[in-house]
Write a protein that binds this DNA or RNA. Structure first.
Length: 469
RNA sequence: GCCCCCAUCGUCUAGCCAGGUCCAGGACACCGCCCUUUCAAGGCGGAGAUCGCGGGUUCGAAUCCCGCUGGGGGUGCCA
């Protein structure tokens, strides 16, 4: 059975790159009817917080991911301790009493001489007696993994292919900190092995860690899983997507009014392309059905907000159901301080959902449907100040009195006014638009009139008349 | 510095593994036209890549090989 996992550390909001990694892991597991695990990697107690963990989980759920098992590394320290002990006993690891300062010194020296830095292995040769003495003196120590000299560690990455790295490139590394907490490269192996993870899917920034981990798998007698290193997501300037590129967390996009399905879909399109050439819109279920690792591109992709936005627009106007759209839209309305009953919102969106690309943009564009009174732009005011506008508005008011306003009816009335009063169509619509929306651009006036309660229409026109004619 | 990864329109990509059907296809963005009461949306069309560069191999290379360059990542008692 295929088992994959997503293993974020709760040190910030869910990053787009991580979200994509999670999605691919999830899709791969579901495609193979396997298991998907969520594991919180909070071994770094300094930087990890419960708040971020909660946010991470919330955002993952919002994206539509569900997991079959959940773990938190901070609750598994006993297990790691046990395996660290095993490694020491089998001679694969040893205590290291070097201080941070000593190591810094070594590093600096290496740099000065222009040679790649590796831990010297000073403590590797300490005798059992020396270790006992130092321990008795209560000297703090880390535990280091003993890395064999000049050995090629080789693995077949399912995306990158054959990768070979020489152990001399890294040297003995720390697996347990001096405060007793285990480090990433060590716990990730213990957990993946114990949890039966078959495919380790993660960002390519982990490639250099992989040989270290393979060495631990082997030392512990665990089966080495398959590795899948996803290309990273880059910002416009081709450097790794990060905070300085602006909105980079799932949360940001959620708050901007992006639909989870659209973000999910877009993230999948970064680096993955459908075997059905040309098709880009897929539901989660469809993705699960056709997702294959072979279709993942091995080069990094630049995140393009424009395309995400376009895709979100596609979802808003034609993919999600009206009811879902209403559900998603209402919180944004409320946040903007507008109130409206569900049925009204439903009617508004039914005829306007094809004209905006994010929910936030939608709220802005549909303002005239939800506010009591509008405020006028300079251009709108200058239109309203025209004599023609006054005539149009008065004529319109007169004619809507006993009529049930539909889009067609509004157009009819406009035509009547055009004919009878010899006023250009453009001027009629301009006047109506200016008085009803306070602007010269936006939703169709006929649509607005067919949905906005007549009392409000009258009130707005009257007010415009009062103020500017 | 050292190690590793990557390289097709501005961007995401198809094609590359199994060389000819590719003077390179699609999507976003861009430009133009149409629709139209405005702005969007939509429809139609256009421009945009000598496939990073240089060598090979071959009758033939985006596709195979070598070198170079460029970009990215890693180089932690972070993950």
């Amino acid at each position: 059975m295929v088992i994959t996992r997503f293993a974020p550390s709760p040190t910030g909001y869910l990053h787009l790159g991580n979200a994509r990694t999670a999605i691919f892991s999830y899709l791969f597991a579901r495609h193979h009817k396997g298991k998907f695990i969520l594991r919180i990697e909070d071994t770094d107690r300094e930087r990890s917080t419960k708040e971020f963990e909660d946010m991470l989980i919330e955002d993952l759920k919002w994206l539509g991911l569900e997991w079959d098992e959940f773990y938190r590394q901070s609750e598994r320290f006993e297990i790691y301790k046990e395996y660290a002990q095993k490694l020491i006993e089998s001679g694969h690891a040893y205590p290291c009493f070097c201080t941070l300062e000593e190591l810094e010194e070594e590093r600096k020296k290496a740099e000065e001489r222009g040679v790649p830095y590796r831990y010297s292995g000073k403590c590797r040769v300490l005798s059992r007696e020396e270790v006992e003495v130092l321990k008795r003196e209560n000297k703090p120590y880390t535990i280091r993994f003993k890395v064999p000299d000049n050995t090629m560690v080789v693995f077949e990455d399912l995306i990158k292919g054959h990768i070979a790295i020489n152990t001399d490139d890294f040297g003995d590394f720390v697996i347990v900190r001096s405060d007793g907490t285990p480090t990433y490269n060590f716990v990730v192996v213990v957990d993946d092995a114990l949890m039966g993870v078959t495919h380790v899917i993660r960002g390519e920034d982990h490639i250099p860690n992989t040989p270290k981990q393979i060495l631990i798998y082997e030392a512990l007698g665990f089966k080495v899983p398959a590795f899948v290193h996803l290309p990273v997501i880059l910002g416009e300037d081709r450097s790794k997507l990060s905070k300085r590129h602006g909105a980079v967390s799932v949360r940001n996009y959620r708050e901007e009014g992006y639909l989870p399905e659209a973000l999910f879909n877009y993230l999948c399109l970064l680096g993955w392309s459908s075997p059905e050439e040309g098709r880009e819109i897929y539901s989660k279920e469809e993705f699960i059905k056709i997702f294959r690792l072979e279709d993942i591109n091995s080069s990094p992709a630049i995140f393009n907000k424009e395309k995400l936005k376009w895709l979100n627009g596609v979802y808003i106007r034609e993919v999600v159901s009206l009811e879902r759209l209403v559900d998603e839209f209402i919180p944004f309305l409320q946040k903007a301080g507008y109130e409206a009953d569900r049925e009204y919102v439903r009617r508004v969106l039914q005829s306007t959902r094809d004209s905006f690309e994010t929910l936030k943009e939608g709220v802005d564009r549909l303002k005239p449907f939800f506010v009591e009174e509008v405020s006028y732009s300079e251009e709108a005011i200058s239109v309203l100040e025209n004599e023609t506008s006054r005539i149009v508005l008065e004529a319109f008011l007169q004619r809507i009195e006993d009529i049930d306003l539909t889009q067609e009816k509004v157009k009819e009335i406009a035509k009547e006014i055009q004919k009878e009063l010899k006023i250009k169509a453009k001027d009629i619509w301009h006047a109506l638009r200016a008085s009803l929306t306070g602007k010269l651009e936006g939703v169709g006036v006929d649509i607005l009139c067919s949905i906005l309660p007549k009392e409000r229409i009258k009130k707005r026109i009257l007010r415009a008349l009062q103020l500017y004619s």
